[in-house]
Design a protein around this nucleic acid. Structure first.
Lengths: 229, 229
DNA sequence: CTAAGCGTGTGGTCCAACCACATCAAGTAG
DNA sequence: CTACTTGATGTGGTTGGACCACACGCTTAG
């Protein structure tokens, strides 16, 4: 057992037992090192790992925002992990797109019409109507799809959706500029978004799921790859 | 930009550009530190992060197995990340079980009958027939379900399935011992497994998906929580 | 009462040294 | 010539100490 893993275990134990909760602060690195009878280096390595997993956030200085505090950002962890494994060519982009279709159509079929996330999605859709900048449109599009995923009320699916998006974000961005007629594409995407929302509001989850799948795969087909919608 | 993140970027760049591929060896920590004009500490912190993400594997000593080499274990990264966030109570076990049903039933519906993974699943099933030890039975069960996921041919879904399993493994284990009649439960699980395999072999993906969902949710209901089958 | 200034504690970085380990090559005994 | 011992070499693993930049909050001078 390597030293930094011992620190990891200790911290995970504190989390599991509830002695360390969201927003809580870890002891200072030097203090924790002395407490666990290890070097500060080992403590720091453990903190780095948890930071990369979206469990901790280290802040310098003094005051409320300083020190190492517990956060909860599952998307960050899954996203960077997926991105790295895509870089090693061991997670094909095709599989990521496929998984995204799976998760997102499921989320659409399970989305609750009264969910606040869905109201946010509707608002985002209005913003997209009065939006001329391509980049801003895509940013809103991302938030729309994430809101859709949140509306299903499953934190794991939401986190995975966000991480999949993050993992192929650079990849997808390369294709948006190559589309023959962006304006008409954007108009079609907006119309499809409205159809999805309408299906969910009508409690027609099956139709919503099908529309989402067509929506994503349609963009996939148009761009020749990558899925950006 | 913190120093160790610079190292992370450099390594990720090497991976993306293909100059560092699966099985490849990173320069020695001291050499890499000098090359990037940073301290060995920062290099080590970056390596730790990538190690936790299942991208690298550090080995001491000399020879072929020594040094820091590139591996590809997406399951490890996703699994530990999910497990940690479950520990912080921000990923409900219920959502994890639900996601597992989603992914696994999809995999069953898409499994190719001629897949080698499916042949392995069939073989595992035979081993489960002649198995008396509860613990061994559960280990085989895990491998059976993972083989089922692999048969769909989507690396992302396979990795996520494995990580979900890992994240709730401890959790699920607590319930297996509390079942009123393990023998009859095991017999039922075996029968259900056979039904799933048969549906896949008959190219009836829809039925296979439904059987998988019932299989998992049935165990969930029997155990009162947690899903261990 | 206000505002400048400093003390204190935080993480961020770096260095130098030592350890344990595994291999490989040289040397030695048979 | 073979087989075994033995040491050199290079790897990651760990440690302690030192210094830096930063941000808050108290003290103090105006």
């Amino acid at each position: 057992m390597r030293t930094h893993q011992l620190v990891l275990q200790w911290i995970e134990g504190q989390l599991s037992s509830g002695q360390l909760a969201l927003g809580g602060r870890l002891p200072a690195e030097r203090a924790l090192a002395e407490q666990l009878k290890v070097s500060r280096t080992s403590v720091r390595e453990a903190i780095r790992v948890l930071e990369a997993m979206g469990v901790l956030r280290a802040g310098v200085g003094s005051g409320p925002d300083a020190g190492t505090v517990v956060i909860a950002d599952p998307t960050a962890a899954l996203g960077s992990a997926l991105r790295l494994h895509v870089a090693t060519s061991h997670l094909p982009v095709k599989d990521i797109v496929e998984t995204r279709v799976l998760l997102e159509s499921w989320a659409a079929s399970r989305a609750r019409p009264e969910s606040p996330a869905l109201a946010e999605a509707a608002q985002l859709l209005e913003q997209m109507d009065s939006c001329t900048d391509t980049e801003e449109f895509l940013a809103l599009d991302i938030r729309f799809h994430l809101a859709l995923a949140d509306a299903a009320g499953n934190a794991v699916v939401s986190a995975m959706m966000g991480s999949l998006r993050e993992a192929i974000q650079d990849y997808a961005g390369r294709f948006t500029g190559n589309l023959p007629d962006w304006d008409s594409t954007a108009a079609r995407l907006r119309a499809e978004h409205r159809g999805i929302l309408a299906a969910i509001s009508n409690h027609d989850g099956g139709r919503a799921a099908q529309l989402v799948a067509d929506h994503i795969e349609g963009y996939y087909a148009e761009a020749g790859l990558g899925s950006g919608a």
